[in-house]
Design a protein around this nucleic acid. Structure first.
Length: 195
DNA sequence: GTGAGGATGCACT
DNA sequence: GTGCATCCTCACG
């Protein structure tokens, strides 16, 4: 089942947790590239100094102020894209960063996109999975609720996953309270988590 | 296996 | 001009 708008309108921490074990689907050419979401991070509101929107509404961050269920894709370090999903109500800037995925199918295509052969390293990082699934600036503001090109589904079988939380990665510039918040969520012991 | 450093371009001040 | 929600390579030994 394709996740609907109501799913993304929930509190961001709830969305970040619930996205674990869901399936990211990228319709690419004639193929459906699918991966299990195994790691996420929450970025919540103007008071979260790790959140881009804490600096206010700009051309770049206005997506986060918009409708839940849209993608917020930004370019960083001169070469990398990051995939986020906007959450909560319009006007409240918040999003969930997809940090890692476990490939489900078409490993050969992912390897081509990444130009490496080690399956463990294909999608175990936010920029890596964007490269593997060919997610770029074209998907900024894309509506994931349409079920076209890029969306998220529930898995057919029900699974019991154990979820862990920890501080977010790569936000040394943020205030201590935000650096310490356990807003990173992972599937325990999954081999495809980021470093 | 671990850590340092460079790549690289765009949004923002 | 500054700095970044990262990744890869190359040194170690």
């Amino acid at each position: 089942m394709i996740l609907k708008r109501e799913f993304y309108q929930q509190p961001t921490l709830e969305v970040a947790r619930s996205l674990l074990g869901k399936k990211l689907v990228r319709q690419h050419d004639q193929q459906k590239l699918m991966g299990l979401i195994v790691e996420t991070e929450a970025y919540i509101g103007e008071n979260d100094t790790a959140c881009h929107a804490s600096k206010g509404k700009t051309q770049r961050t206005e997506i986060m102020f918009g409708r839940a269920g849209h993608a917020y894709v930004y370019f960083i370090y001169g070469m990398h894209y990051m995939l986020n999903i906007v959450t909560e109500s319009e006007g409240k800037p918040a999003a969930v960063l997809i940090r890692a995925i476990q490939p489900i199918n078409h490993i050969d295509i992912l390897k081509l996109h990444r130009n490496i052969d080690n399956e463990k390293l294909l999608t175990n990082g936010p920029a890596k999975l964007c490269q593997a699934y060919n997610i770029n600036k074209a998907f900024n503001d894309w509506d994931l609720c349409l079920g076209k090109e890029l969306w998220i589904e529930t898995m057919d079988e029900s699974n019991n996953y154990q979820i862990q939380s920890s501080p977010r990665i790569g936000i040394d510039y943020a205030e201590e309270k935000d650096r310490n918040a356990h807003w990173r969520f992972t599937l325990k012991d999954n081999p495809f988590l980021s470093k």
